[in-house]
């Protein structure tokens, strides 16, 4: 498999993001279901960061900052809602999403 005649050259045939979109989602899910706070926050950051990265790479958004801020706001809202309206372990999970939003708003991977 070393040559592809006739294939499109409109996009680059490599992208680093899909792997991390997938892994981020998986890590986040595990963190939420097995309440593991750091795992949930880290997975959320990885997932959302990679989604923004892939959107920027494919030209759906021009400015990664806007994407990241929008994603953080969504996380803050969703996490806040869950954290406010529930108690116990569900509350913890809401806080995890909230924390993901907070981190996301202040931390920005250089590469994006």
């Amino acid at each position: 498999m070393d040559e592809q005649p006739g294939l499109s050259d409109e996009y680059r045939k490599a992208s680093p993001w899909p792997l991390f979109v997938a892994f981020g989602l998986a890590i986040f899910e595990v963190g939420i279901v097995w309440p593991l706070f750091p795992v949930a926050v880290g997975g959320l950051l990885l997932f959302v960061g990679s989604v923004v990265g892939i959107l920027r790479e494919s030209g759906y958004i021009a400015n990664p900052w806007k994407g990241l801020v929008a994603a953080s706001v969504v996380c803050l809202a969703a996490g806040g809602l869950i954290a406010l309206t529930t108690t116990g372990s569900v509350h913890l999970r809401g806080v995890a999403i909230l924390a993901g939003g907070v981190f996301g708003s202040i931390w920005q991977p250089e590469s994006v």
């Binding site: 045939k13 992208s15 899909p18 792997l19 997938a22 892994f23 989602l25 998986a26 890590i27």
Partner: peptide
């Protein structure tokens, strides 16, 4: 193409879990 790659890369974590 990228969604295609995401769909594949969801599978290794699925198998691990």
């Amino acid at each position: 193409p990228r969604i295609n790659a995401i769909a594949f890369w969801l599978l290794p974590p699925a198998a691990i879990l």
